[in-house]
Design a protein around this nucleic acid. Structure first.
Length: 459
RNA sequence: GUGGUCGUAGUUCAAUGGUAGAACACCGCUCUGUGGCAGCGGCCACGUGGGUUCGAUUCCCAUCGAUCACCCCA
C-alpha cells in the first residue's frame, strides 16, 4: 500500500484479510436439447412495458389520494420475522397457516415474506415510537405481497397492493373516511365498485356470536352438508356464506351478528353508516362479511367491482377495517387503528378491460436521421445538444438506410425529421422535413436547435 | 390444498398417427439520399419427460404451466 503517511484522525485500517479462494473454473454451459425452458415461477408475473402505463396510473392515483387525505409514505421490508405475522394476522388464519412463504436463515431466524402490509406498518409504528407524534398517524405504502395460494386469474402469489393505515384514533369518522377514500380512489379511475360493510364488534362479542352460531348449527347438524360441517369447526361464520341451497332456510333463522354486537360497537357502526350517508357513498350491508385476518374489530369492508356484464366479479379489489387490538398485540400501548388495502393487480386488470387500447409510442418532437459515417457522428452530437435543450429527440443511429429511419420516424409519429448526410455535414446544413406535408427546407446546422424550437413554438 | 378443462411461431388462429400452415408483428431487400403504399425474401412453434406404435404434435401416463370451481381473499 502506498499510503504511508496516514492522518492521525483517520480510522484504523482493518487488518488485511485474504480474499476467498476462487471457485474452480466450471466448464462452459452448453445448452442441450430437451432442456426444459425456464419460465416464471408459479404464481409470479412479469409487468410488461405494454402494461406499465396502467401501473403508473395507479401509482399516481395512490399518491394523489394519500396527499389529499394527509397520509405519509412509509416503506417497510418485504421480509419480516415470522412471529410478526403469526401474532398479528393470527395463527389459525389461512394466510399464516398455509400461505406463508417462510424459511430459516443461515443465522437460524425464522423469517417470512410479508403476506399483507398492515402488520409491518404497525410494527414500524411501535418500533419508531410514533405514538409520540400527533395522533392519529396516517401512513400509506405500496409494494408486493406474497401468499402461497393456488393461482387463478387475477390471483397471484406475488401481488401488489397500496395500503392506507390510520393509527391512533378510535372515532368512527376515521372508519368512514377510509371507506370514502377507497370509494374516491375507484371513482377517480372510472371503475364502478360496490362497497360491502359489516361490523365484527369486539373480540368478545365475536366469540359470543360464534358460540351462538355453532350451537344453532349443531342443533341442525343433520341438515348440513359435509362441507359445511367442516366449516362449522374451522370458521363458523363462513357457514353463513354457504352456497348450499338447503342452507337458505337455515340461514334465515340463524343468529345474526348485529344482535350480538355490544352496545358500543353497535353505535360505532351506526355512526360509520351515518357518515357514509352524509357524504353520499353507497354501501351494502353484508352480515356475512368476515375477513381472513384475526386482527379486525368493529368495522370491516370489502370493495368489489360492480359486475355490469356476466364477468364474475367475485374477487375483491380492496378491503380493510378497524383493528383496535393490533398495536397492543405487537407490543405497543393499547392504540386503536384502522386501514385498508387495494389490490393493484386486479385493478389493473379492470382498467385493461375498460380501455384496452394502448398508444405505445413515446412522444418525440423531432427525429434525427443520419446518412453515412460523417452524418452519423454529427447526428450523435446533435442529439446531445437537443437533449440538453429539452427537446425530445428520436433516433435510430444503428440503422444506415435512410428509408428505415424514415419508417421509424413515421412510426413514432415525429412531426419533424432532421436529415444529416455527408453533403449536409460538409455544407454545415441540415434538412428539416415536415412529416405531415412532406415539404422540407435546408437550415443552418448551427441554428438547428433554434429552428426546431421555433417550429415547435417554444421560442 | 381438492376437483374439472386446456397447452401449436412474439400474438391471434389452423391442420395432421407419416415431424406443421396462415394472418399480424419483427428483420432485411427492391431503394446508402427520404416515411405512411406495394412486391419479394428471412426469422420464429407442437411446454417438458416417459409410454404405446414401424412411426406421436396427434393416443396414454406423469410433470410443469395456464384456467375454472371449491377455498380464500387483494
Amino acid at each position: 500500500m502506498p499510503n504511508t503517511k496516514s492522518k492521525s484522525s483517520a480510522p484504523k485500517r482493518a487488518p488485511y484479510v485474504a480474499p476467498p479462494k476462487l471457485a474452480p473454473v466450471l466448464p462452459p454451459f452448453v445448452p442441450k436439447k430437451g432442456m426444459h425452458p425456464i419460465q416464471l415461477v408459479r404464481g409470479m408475473r412479469d409487468l410488461l412495458p405494454t402494461d406499465q402505463h396502467y401501473w403508473k396510473q395507479l401509482a399516481v392515483q395512490s399518491e394523489k389520494i394519500a396527499e389529499e387525505y394527509g397520509y405519509e409514505r412509509i416503506d417497510t421490508p418485504i421480509v419480516e420475522e415470522t412471529t410478526l405475522f403469526v401474532r398479528g394476522v393470527g395463527k389459525a388464519t389461512d394466510i399464516v397457516e398455509k400461505e406463508l412463504y417462510s424459511w430459516e436463515t443461515p443465522g437460524g431466524e425464522s423469517i417470512s415474506l410479508r403476506p399483507e402490509g398492515t402488520a409491518s406498518v404497525v410494527r414500524a409504528y411501535v418500533q419508531h415510537g410514533m405514538l409520540n407524534q400527533p395522533q392519529p398517524v396516517k401512513l400509506w405504502y405500496t409494494g408486493p405481497l406474497f401468499r402461497h395460494d393456488r393461482p387463478q386469474a387475477d390471483r397471484f402469489r406475488q401481488f401488489f397492493t397500496t395500503g392506507f393505515e390510520c393509527i391512533g384514533d378510535a372515532e368512527p369518522v376515521i372508519d368512514a373516511q377510509l371507506i370514502i377514500m377507497a370509494w374516491n380512489f375507484f371513482k377517480a379511475l372510472g371503475i364502478d365498485v360496490t362497497v360491502r360493510v359489516n361490523s365484527l364488534g369486539t373480540p368478545e362479542s365475536r366469540i359470543n356470536y360464534k358460540n351462538a352460531l355453532v350451537t344453532y348449527f349443531r342443533s341442525k347438524r343433520h341438515q348440513l352438508s359435509e362441507e359445511d360441517k367442516k366449516r362449522l369447526l374451522k370458521n363458523p361464520l363462513r357457514v353463513l356464506d354457504s352456497k348450499d341451497p338447503g342452507m337458505q332456510e337455515l340461514k334465515m333463522e340463524a343468529p345474526q351478528m348485529v344482535d350480538w354486537l355490544d352496545e358500543e360497537s353497535k353505535s360505532h357502526f351506526m355512526r360509520v353508516l351515518e357518515y357514509l350517508d352524509e357524504v353520499g357513498v353507497p354501501y351494502q350491508l353484508d352480515p356475512y362479511l368476515v375477513r381472513g385476518l384475526d386482527y379486525y374489530t368493529k368495522t370491516v369492508f370489502e370493495i368489489y367491482a360492480t359486475s355490469d356484464d356476466q364477468e364474475l366479479a367475485q374477487s375483491a379489489l380492496g378491503g380493510g377495517g378497524r383493528y383496535d387490538g393490533l398495536v397492543e398485540l405487537l407490543g405497543g400501548r393499547p392504540t386503536p387503528a384502522a386501514g385498508f388495502g387495494l389490490g393493484l393487480d386486479r385493478i389493473v386488470s379492470r382498467l385493461k378491460k375498460k380501455s384496452p387500447v394502448v398508444e405505445s409510442a413515446r412522444h418525440i418532437d423531432v427525429f434525427l436521421a443520419q446518412l453515412g459515417e460523417m452524418g452519423r457522428k454529427k447526428a450523435l452530437a446533435l442529439f446531445e445538444e437537443f437533449r440538453e435543450a429539452g427537446i425530445m429527440v428520436g433516433e435510430a443511429f444503428a440503422k444506415s438506410s435512410i428509408k428505415s429511419q424514415m419508417e421509424i420516424a413515421n412510426r413514432r409519429t415525429a412531426k419533424w425529421t432532421m436529415v444529416i448526410g455527408q453533403k449536409e455535414v460538409l455544407d454545415g446544413t441540415a434538412i428539416l422535413r415536415d412529416m405531415d406535408s412532406g415539404t422540407q427546407e435546408i437550415v443552418d446546422v448551427k441554428k438547428a436547435i433554434h429552428e426546431v424550437k421555433k417550429k415547435l413554438g417554444l421560442v
